[in-house]
Deep mutational scan, measured.
Amino acid sequence: MATDAALRRLLRLHRTEIAVAVDSAFPLLHALADHDVVPEDKFQETLHLKEKEGCPQAFHALLSWLLTQDSTAILDFWRVLFKDYNLERYGRLQPILDSFPKDVDLSQPRKGRKPPAVPKALVPPPRLPTKRKASEEARAAAPAALTPRGTASPGSQLKAKPPKKPESSAEQQRLPLGNGIQTMSASVQRAVAMSSGDVPGARGAVEGILIQQVFESGGSKKCIQVGGEFYTPSKFEDSGSGKNKARSSSGPKPLVRAKGAQGAAPGGGEARLGQQGSVPAPLALPSDPQLHQKNEDECAVCRDGGELICCDGCPRAFHLACLSPPLREIPSGTWRCSSCLQATVQEVQPRAEEPRPQEPPVETPLPPGLRSAGEEVRGPPGEPLAGMDTTLVYKHLPAPPSAAPLPGLDSSALHPLLCVGPEGQQNLAPGARCGVCGDGTDVLRCTHCAAAFHWRCHFPAGTSRPGTGLRCRSCSGDVTPAPVEGVLAPSPARLAPGPAKDDTASHEPALH
């Protein structure tokens, strides 16, 4: 009773807030009518008042009428009001819900409408889902798969039609296919003929059939049928067999079959498995989609049935006599038709004709302190090069084509190399640097090759510096006499390219 009084008091307290929050009759008014909170006449009256005075006034009048009803109607109103779709449509209802007392429970059932309790003993237990329907569909599909699609060729003596089998029958139906081979029951999904010589313990000319048996419980189990008994694959494991010639990621696949039913060829011909030897223990289905393919039931050349050999690369099948050149017997292992072999060759040939990528240039590290003349020119003028003790990398590039010797140069053309002071002394051009340390401070000019250098860098042994005729380390061993002091540049003949010694390969005349 306390809860009923509290709900009535809360409705009177929030009546105006609810009326202002509800700006549309749908969905709240319609939901109240659906849950029998508002009768039909009051529903029509509220809609009429909404058209006349507006939605807030109409709902305020409806809530005032609701306060005169019993506690069950008020409880049902609060339940409908706080439904998710009403809270989404009328956003101003959320503060009312947040301020609702926590001790007021809106989930209690309506009085007088409590459903009768059902004894637990009368409640049926839930049924577990079964796979009976899938099993029945598999039974119905198996006879259809064994139905012949056409008439065999005159040369083929193997013609068999499976008798119709009602689904209610649980007995196995067997077809006489000759040579002791028996087909599987209607619940078998796949059958492959297997030679009895590969099964340990088999006697006589009995041949087993590799099947997948579907049981009534819905589970499946792969086994071997020899005669009327089934054997699990673990009985046929043979770890010492060295003649297993397995197909790549293979499961067994029928390579020879008669049109209309699988079996042995007439005249004692023995149908073979995809792999010879003992049956392997793992009978998992292969991951290669080509091995799941269903080959055609007629020859791809003459479009006739009979004894066919199936290609492992495509769905086509052929007569042995229709092949070019014809085959006398079934080859062992994987067999592919000429079209598949030709496609494989065409895929391999473009790969062989692809040009080989060019090898990157060989990189040879230079000892610290040495650099090529090109690196000396590329440096920024007026700045010493940083990191001189790091190992430089010199790339061996292809030799350029031989060019004509340089033409003779006048001494005026070499004027930018040297600057003559007032006393006739050779001065260095701006930006000249030593080729060893890279520093341009207090550098000297070689009178023979006009290269800038430090005496301490080229002659670290402490050799005394002569007063005139300074030469760098590369030119100090040259027998050519030094030019007379005061000459602007060496003779043009000295600039012609010539053979250089091994220790002077990195010091070429550089223009500054």
Rank of each mutant, 00 (worst) to 15 (best):
D4Y: 05
A5V: 14
A6R: 06
A6F: 14
L7Q: 04
R9I: 02
R12V: 04
R12Q: 00
R15M: 02
V20I: 14
P27F: 01
P27N: 03
A33W: 06
H35L: 01
H35I: 02
V37M: 00
V38L: 02
P39S: 04
P39Y: 00
P39M: 01
D41L: 05
F43H: 00
Q44F: 15
E45V: 02
E51N: 00
E53M: 05
G54L: 01
P56E: 00
Q57G: 00
A58R: 03
F59M: 06
H60V: 01
H60W: 04
L62K: 00
S64K: 00
S64M: 01
S64T: 04
W65G: 03
W65Y: 00
L66Y: 06
T68K: 08
S71T: 11
S71G: 07
L75S: 08
W78P: 05
R79M: 00
Y85H: 00
N86Q: 00
N86A: 00
N86I: 02
L87F: 01
E88C: 04
Y90T: 04
D98G: 00
D98I: 04
D98F: 03
S99H: 05
P101W: 00
K102S: 07
D103K: 05
D103M: 00
V104S: 01
D105E: 08
L106D: 02
S107L: 11
S107G: 06
Q108K: 04
Q108A: 02
R110D: 15
K111A: 15
R113N: 15
R113T: 09
R113V: 05
K114C: 11
P115S: 15
P116A: 07
A117T: 12
P119V: 08
P119F: 14
L122E: 07
L122W: 08
P124E: 09
P124K: 05
P126R: 01
P129I: 03
T130C: 14
T130W: 14
R132P: 00
R132W: 05
K133C: 02
S135A: 15
E137V: 08
A140K: 07
P143I: 08
A144R: 08
A145H: 14
T147A: 03
T147D: 07
P148H: 09
A152T: 14
S153E: 12
P154S: 06
G155I: 03
K159Y: 14
A160W: 15
A160K: 00
K161H: 08
K161A: 05
P162M: 05
K164H: 13
P166A: 12
Q173K: 14
G178L: 15
N179H: 15
G180F: 01
Q182Y: 02
Q182L: 02
T183I: 03
T183M: 06
T183E: 04
M184I: 10
R190S: 07
A193M: 05
D198S: 13
D198Q: 05
V199Y: 14
P200N: 12
A205L: 04
V206R: 04
I211W: 07
I211S: 07
Q212G: 04
Q213F: 00
F215M: 02
E216L: 14
S217M: 06
K222N: 06
C223P: 05
C223F: 03
V226R: 05
G227N: 05
G228V: 04
G228T: 15
Y231L: 07
P233Y: 05
F236G: 06
E237Y: 05
S239A: 13
K243E: 04
N244M: 01
N244E: 03
N244S: 14
N244R: 05
A246N: 02
G251V: 13
P252N: 14
K253S: 07
K259L: 09
G260M: 15
A264K: 06
P266W: 10
G268H: 05
G269Q: 08
A271G: 06
